[in-house]
């Protein structure tokens, strides 16, 4: 019996990426092995508050920007 579900196609930092349906933003960040305390996320040009990552279900076509601080002048 097949329960293959279609993967969701996302764009993360300009790169195509596929995740299982139902993946939350918290789930994606965990998959990417990132420290939520050190990043910020914009989803379709809207800031996603850190406290809501677990509640944000990703949708096909979402464009995400995941940023952090680096050296700069």
């Amino acid at each position: 019996m097949s329960n293959t579900l279609e993967l969701l196609a996302l764009t993360v930092n300009g790169e195509p990426m596929q995740v299982p349906p139902g993946t939350t933003l918290a789930g994606l960040i965990a998959r990417l092995e990132l420290d939520t305390r050190k990043v910020a996320v914009e989803r379709n040009l809207e800031i996603v508050p850190r406290s809501t990552y677990g509640a944000v279900a990703l949708s096909a076509g979402d464009a995400l920007e995941i940023v952090h601080f680096i050296g700069g002048g």
């Binding site: 050190k38 910020a40 995941i66 940023v67 952090h68 601080f69 680096i70 050296g71 700069g72």
Partner: peptide, 19 residues
Amino acid sequence: VTVAVRRVNLSDRNAPMLQ
């Protein structure tokens, strides 16, 4: 100190971080 905001490098996630 001033810092810049940039995309996380998804291909080298273990790179040391400024913080």
